[in-house]
Simulated scan of single mutants.
Amino acid sequence: MMNIKPSAAIRKNYNEISELCKQSGEPVYLTKNGEGDLVVMDIKAFARRESMLRLRENLIAAEEDRLSGKKGYSVDEVSKMMKDAVKEVLDGQRK
C-alpha cells in the first residue's frame, strides 16, 4: 500500500507520520500542490534498502566481470562474500 500525504502533514503530524513509517517499513510520499514532492522513511528501512542496493550492485558487477572473462572466485571466496553481505543486511535491520 502506498502512503501519500500532503506536505503540510509533516509539520502538523510529524509523530504520526514517523510512526506510520516505522510500523509499515514503507516510505511515505509527500505531495505539494497535488504533485509529488518528498519521500520520508524510517532510518532502519532506509539502511536495509541501501544494503540491498549495494548487494545488487556488487552482484551485477561480478556478473559483468564474469561475462567479460575476468578471473572468477572459488566456492570458499563466494561463500565468504555472501555471508558478509547477509551480515551487512542483517546488521542494517538491527540498527
Rank of each mutant, 00 (worst) to 15 (best):
A61N: 10
T31I: 07
E77N: 09
V78S: 09
Y14E: 04
E16D: 09
L20I: 10
K95I: 15
E35V: 15
V28N: 04
P27T: 05
R56F: 04
R56V: 03
G36S: 13
L59D: 01
S7N: 05
V40Q: 05
V75D: 12
M41L: 09
E50Q: 03
L30I: 09
Y29E: 10
V78G: 02
R94D: 15
K5C: 02
V86S: 12
I43Y: 02
Y29I: 13
E57G: 01
R94Q: 15
K44H: 12
D65Q: 10
I17C: 07
N58W: 06
N33P: 12
L53R: 00
E57I: 04
D76W: 06
Y73V: 07
N33A: 15
A8N: 08
E57D: 06
Y73C: 05
L20D: 05
F46R: 09
S7P: 00
R56W: 00
K87M: 13
I60K: 03
D76S: 14
N15P: 02
M52P: 00
K87A: 14
Y14C: 04
V75Q: 10
D42F: 04
S68P: 01
M1V: 15
M1F: 14
D76Q: 13
K70T: 03
K12H: 03
S51L: 00
I10V: 12
Q93W: 14
D42S: 12
V75G: 05
M81K: 12
R48M: 06
K83F: 13
A9V: 00
G92T: 13
S68T: 08
G72H: 03
M1C: 14
D37C: 12
K5F: 02
E77D: 13
R54V: 00
I43N: 12
V86E: 12
M1N: 14
R11K: 05
R66I: 01
Q93P: 03
F46P: 01
G92Y: 08
E35G: 12
V39P: 02
S24V: 08
S24L: 08
C21D: 04
R48D: 03
K12G: 07
A45K: 05
A61V: 06
E26Y: 03
V78H: 05
L20S: 09
A45P: 00
L55M: 09
Q23P: 07
P27Y: 01
A8M: 09
A85W: 10
S18K: 11
K70M: 10
D65H: 04
S68W: 04
K70Y: 04
N33E: 15
N13C: 00
F46C: 09
E88L: 02
K44F: 10
D76K: 13
G25S: 05
